[in-house]
């Protein structure tokens, strides 16, 4: 079983690293085409990444090791996230639980690394980005916790793999109101956490409006490459989690080769479709005024809370 679990984790990591630039490419291209632009193409993020990773970083004199460590930390936390979240198979290492509390903790680790990086640069933009990012993180993390917790109630366990397996075994539970509320709350916080519209505009060049981009303004070359890939992996991991919680079909229950192959194909399809759908929705919405973002996130928290209450009433 351990060898199977290790195989699954390796597949998760390789798949996530290969798939995340494609996912970003699909999202950007979808948005470009819907807006009537040609766009850079699906492979552009991959080309950007290759270029950045080959470049020497420029670091300000007097900067501390945080500048070097934060990208590594973000990258590491994103990879751990990808390893823990059941993408392809529900087989998990028994010694390392893919527990929802662990997942939220690892997520926060990456958030903190980014915020420290923003402060490290010592510029007004970086600090501004970090402060906004922490405000949003403080509102997002409880909702992530609550909404997955709501899904864990019927499964009777907080291990993500077990939750997905339980949902797969009982498809009727996918449509019960508690589950739908929790999934919706999760989608909202995933959008906020990964810096997409309407919370943050990933395609803006205006420093004063930025959140995520403001923190990484001072990074360049390799550092920026790792930060970009780390953020993309985060998006991939969170979207993958939503996809497999909402539509668990296709995920393998063991480590058999055929099942894994189907699992890889299923998650790839689900992720790209979800990404394209997210990008398509972004065309039709604008960015919220910063002070209204907490209203949105508080709303999603309320949904998650209702979902938890409903879970106890229903089961």
């Amino acid at each position: 079983m351990t060898i199977g679990a290790v195989t699954v984790i390796v597949i998760h990591l390789v798949l996530a690293v290969l798939l995340s630039p494609v996912l970003i490419g699909v999202m950007r291209t979808t948005r470009a085409r819907l807006e009537g632009r040609v766009g850079g193409g699906i492979r552009q993020p991959w080309r950007d990444l290759r270029k950045l990773l080959a470049k020497q970083p420029t670091r300000a004199p007097g900067s501390t090791p945080v500048l070097t460590l934060a990208p590594i930390l973000l990258m590491a936390s994103s990879l751990v996230l990808c390893a823990l979240i059941p993408f392809v198979s529900t087989v998990a290492l028994t010694s390392v639980p893919g527990d929802l509390f662990v997942v939220v903790g690892v997520l926060l680790l990456g958030t903190v690394a980014l915020a420290l990086l923003g402060l490290e640069s010592g510029t007004a933009f970086g600090g501004m980005g970090s402060s906004r990012h922490m405000v949003i993180a403080a509102l997002v993390e409880p909702t992530v916790l609550l909404s997955i917790y709501a899904l864990s109630v019927p499964a009777g366990t907080s291990a993500l793999a077990a939750i997905v397996r339980a949902r797969l075994a009982d498809p009727a539970s996918l449509l019960n109101p508690a589950s739908l509320l929790a999934i919706f709350a999760l989608v909202v916080v995933v959008i906020a956490e990964t810096g997409r519209l309407p919370v943050d505009n990933p395609s803006t060049h205006l420093e004063l409006t930025m959140i995520h981009e403001a923190m990484i303004l001072e990074s360049g070359g390799r550092d920026l490459g790792w930060l970009e890939l780390g953020s993309w992996l985060r998006l991939t991991a969170l979207l993958g989690l939503v996809a497999n919680l909402a539509l668990p079909w296709g995920i393998a229950q063991d480590a058999a080769p055929l099942g894994l192959l189907v699992g890889v194909a299923a998650i790839t399809g689900k992720l790209l479709l979800l990404g394209a759908a997210l990008a398509a929705v972004e065309v039709f919405i604008a960015k919220l005024r910063l002070f209204r973002v907490p209203e949105l996130l508080a709303g999603s928290f309320v949904l998650a809370f209702l979902s938890v209450s409903a879970s106890y009433l229903v089961f």
Binding site: R31, L34, E35, G36, R37, L197, P198, N201, S203, T204, L206, T209, V283, I285, A286, K287
Partner: peptide, 11 residues
């Protein structure tokens, strides 16, 4: 309008 994040109008 582009500064509100509604890019399609700008296009």
């Amino acid at each position: 309008i582009n500064d509100t994040g509604f890019g399609i109008v700008n296009q």
